[in-house]
């Protein structure tokens, strides 16, 4: 790792500096576009007390679900959870804290966090349990609540292709939350299917410009499908 060349040689190096009680932002929607090898590396490192911010929390035995097995997650910030039995069990026993956040608000909190905006007003959640304890304001006759931005110590991202400079493109709907978390991590680590030579990616087609990215690693992916649904 030197200068603008963001490539690292191992997953251990990719998450160097990750310690207990940190906040980790993870890309992905369900099991689509999740940084599966970086999640596996978090498990291997055995860090605990983590706050994890991600739309979902994987399933039993795959995705972020594997971090529940050794109780590495203390708090989960997500829009939809509970696709896994272990999650439910730890939630009911009080070992795991959950902050449910509307999906669009979660996306915008990450976008704002990465863009240096500390909080924003949104109509989403006004008059619902989500608004409890939050400042409300009427603007032009509509009610809004103030939602704080989110940033993290680490952002873990799954891309399709990246170059040495950390410019990243995503494939299909595996994009989802990935470009947002990429902007909001103090250290942003991106794993991709292919690292290409500088100049190969069209500058106008880059989803995540390299300025947001600190470390790049090429991995192999299982890409498990949660709900295989076929035509007819």
């Amino acid at each position: 790792m030197s200068g603008l060349d963001k490539r690292v040689g191992s997953y251990e190096e990719a998450l160097a500096g990750l310690t207990d009680n940190m906040t980790v932002l993870a890309g992905g929607f369900g099991l689509c576009g999740i940084p599966e090898n970086l999640i596996a590396e978090i498990r291997r490192r055995g860090v605990s007390g983590l706050t994890v911010v991600s739309n979902n929390c994987g399933i039993d035995g795959f995705g972020l679900g594997v971090l529940l097995e050794d109780r590495q997650i203390r708090k989960m910030i997500a829009s939809y959870v509970g696709e896994n039995a272990l999650f439910e069990q730890q939630l009911l026993s009080g070992e795991l804290e959950v902050e449910l956040t509307p999906q669009g608000t979660l996306a915008e909190k990450l976008r704002a966090g990465g863009a240096g905006i500390p909080a924003f007003f949104t109509a989403t959640g006004y008059g619902t349990p989500v608004a409890e304890g939050k400042e409300a304001r009427e603007i032009n006759g509509r009610h809004y609540i103030l939602e704080p931005a989110i940033t993290g110590d680490f952002a873990i991202v799954k891309g399709w292709k990246a170059d040495h400079f950390g410019n990243v493109v995503y494939r299909h709907t595996a994009q989802n939350f990935n470009p947002l978390v990429a902007t909001a991590g103090r250290i942003t680590v991106v794993e991709v299917e292919e690292i290409v030579e500088p100049g190969e990616l069209d500058p106008a087609q880059i989803h995540t410009p390299g300025i947001y990215v600190d470390r790049i690693i090429q991995g192999r992916f299982e890409k498990r499908i949660e709900k295989r649904t076929l035509r007819g």
Binding site: L106, H172, F177, K227
Partner: peptide, 24 residues
């Protein structure tokens, strides 16, 4: 394609004229 799903997490296709973007 594992990278092509809908909000219900089912595998889908994109029609002609489709676009794909971030959650934000």
């Amino acid at each position: 394609d594992a990278d092509m799903i809908n909000a219900g997490k089912q595998t889908v296709t994109a029609r002609k004229g489709a676009s794909i973007f971030s959650s934000a």
